[in-house]
Design a protein around this nucleic acid. Sequence first.
RNA 1: GCCGCCGUGGUGGAAUGGUAGACACGUUGGACUUAAAAUCCAAUGAGGGCAACUUCGUGACGGUUCGAAUCCGUCCGGCGGCACCA
Length: 822
Amino acid sequence: MDPCLRRDDRKNMQPYNHKQIEKKWQKKWEEEKPFKAEDFSDKEKFYCLVEFPYPSGDGLHVGHVRPYTAFDIISRKRRMEGYNVLFPIGFDAFGLPTENYAIKHKISPVDATKKNIANFTKQMKSLGLSFDWDRVVNTTDSDYYKWTQWIFLQFFKNDLAYKTTMPINWCLSCKIGLANEEVVDGKCERCGGEVEKRDKEQWMLRITEYADKLDKDLDKVDYSERIKIQQKNWIGKSEGVEINFNSEEYDIPVFTTRIDTIFGVTAMVLSPEHPLVMKLVNDDYLDEVKEYVEKCKKKTDIERTIVEKEVTGVLIGASATNPMTGEKIPIWIADYVLAQYGTGAVMMVPAHDERDFVFAKKYGIDIKHVIALSHQEAKLDDVYTDEGYLINSGEFDGLTSQDARIKLADYVEMKEYGRKQVNFHLRDWVFSRQRYWGEPIPIIHCEECGEVPVPEEDLPVLLPSVEHYEPTDTGESPLASIESFVNVKCPKCGGDGKRETDTMPNWAGSSWYFLRYIDSKNKEAFADDKKLRYWVPVDWYNGGMEHTTLHLLYSRFWYKFLFDIGVIPKECKSEPYKKRTSHGLILAKGGEKMSKSKGNVVNPDEVIDDCGADIFRIYEMFVGPFEQPAEWDTQGLGGCRRFVDKVWSLQERISENVDTEKDVEKLLHKTIKKVGEDIEELKFNTAVSALMILTNELVKLALDSDRGKEKVSEDVFKKLVILLAPFAPHLAEEIWENLDNKKSVFKEKWPEYDKELVRDEKIDLIIQINGKLRDTIKVSADISEEDAKEKALSSEKIKKHLEKQEIKKVIFVKGKLINFVV
RNA sequence: GCCGCCGUGGUGGAAUGGUAGACACGUUGGACUUAAAAUCCAAUGAGGGCAACUUCGUGACGGUUCGAAUCCGUCCGGCGGCACCA
């Protein structure tokens, strides 16, 4: 059953025909381009950014509609408020799904992308989104990725791009490298075969160089709190001590944030990948160690760090010395220690660390308590991870954990056992993929000169057409098989060189796209300086919560780097986004994600066809709080359709020169206030609700007018239409035109509310006894405590409740309530 | 496992320290209609009462407060992220 089908039997008026009306206005917007942003203007600028879509073959998702509509509303409102608004859109088109789609359907990714972008464009236009279509960017366009490559070269020249060996997922039967997503439960998604880690030379970006800045500068920006916390935790700044434990001729540094527990160390644990493992291992233990290391290759980092599943480890038959105590302790390897973090080695303090404790219990390692809560001794068989006072720690006994950390860090430095160290959880960014559908990395390998950057004037390095897009069974990118691409002269010495055949990850193009919108057609530079100075920073950036740690951090990093090397003018701020918010996902009915395999996908084209874009937009705004996930409910569309119908039918029930009742006037101004404020706070659901309340009130008045009372004032109705316009732009334009207005409703000023009219003179005063509601009385809003008390006590209900009770205390909240404590 | 978010009627949600359930869906009853649809009107958290009214109620338990859906603690459940999906 289609909830949007409707028949209208009203005699005089044409029923609301969304197809005709929406087409009419979309055509007009297409021709007249009223949403084109001006470079430079006397108006204040407002750069409003939504994450650009990945143009998949499935087309636009109803989940896209939510943020796009929300920020279309904000953009339209800001224009009405007199801002020069930049609201651009583009396509993030490189990546795995398109490549896999191309392989499956035996078409080129270029053609697939072209087709998908055309479809997405059509769909977005049919939603009436007020994007500036003249600035569209496409990350797979060589005019675009030329500059992605150019930025990579700047990283390279500034020593922030380097090559190193990193493990990749390798399918033993397909013999190809796999993305993490293609590994399901440790098996290859395509063939179900075994997957293991295999080392591969990879390009890296030194994002850790910017870790501190990325952390600190979060204080300068207006991101929602949960986003800031997630980023901070991801960067994971921790201050501690790096201290050397000596073993034979090697120093093994460990990093710890709990140097106060140093006297409780009873073993040392290395990650299985630690370079010293094979050097220190005792021959008697060699087989076991090798077997263990092999096993670890098959686990993901997440599996490795789950404590309760099962911690495992083996002895390597060597020992290390705790520099503070001179004690010899055994060395273990265990997969819960990750090679990438810290030094890849930890000191084991089972008494005061959860994972160490579990490990020590399992393998019978000594547990030595050195921190106690106050003067009580900790229970001997327990783990205590909080702070406390040092015990069993020699001359440091009795200090608090906090003091001990300071004293011990100084002591360690003085004795040259180690040094204070700030560590980050953040790791450098693996920047190469052995895939076809990405930006070629613009580097040439020369036997004589090493890694040589492609000269900037030779950019872009074009992605050549190939026969096969499949990854190769040598682990190389498909580009490696194209000799004309690979074999080039070294730009430095002119000798024989080989082009880098790895491509960049999808994240590359999206790390700077917001800068390209500013000057999307510039052939000389990635963007003009003056335009950058005008538009940067982005005033408001909205995207998915799922991009908080990767894309958002990556793009902040790229921007900061470009800013530091002077490519971004120094008049711009050091942060790209002033404000960042995030939307909730649209889920299928039942709270599940929409997916083709589950068959629960809602196609936006069908919704537009049945109900029209305006009803669709209102529905998505009304469905629930913007920042929380929401479930799609087809029946909900019906309610929005009824609302639109009511507004539409009000058109012919209005007349000029009507005296509006005070109550209606007050409601109008409260609505103006509420809708305006709610839009700014992303509370679109309650904004729509406020518009419904006003509409219902006007409908009631209109019905009364049929019975001889006054009609609805045109002025009030016009205000309603203006408030509704950002939500339902086609409908509003059409009604506006019907009301004999020559100009677009979006040329109107956003209404202001009258403070006097918003204030209530009379309120319902809540009367509570012991915090429980017992009565309400109508009183003037500024009633004094004495008067309120007197009035409250004269209420019959209250008298009854207070019988034989003694009033101990009276709490009065002005304009709200009075509470008697008995 | 770690980090973040969320948990309220039959349903989506509103209320973020002060009247729990705005607005909307659904359901039931009524009006209009030959009938249906559409539209309009009324009722609608649960229990008790003829009624006035009253008791209970915001995932669970505990705490803070005159007063807690809201703040704190523990637990349970769901969702997002965990670095090669985008």
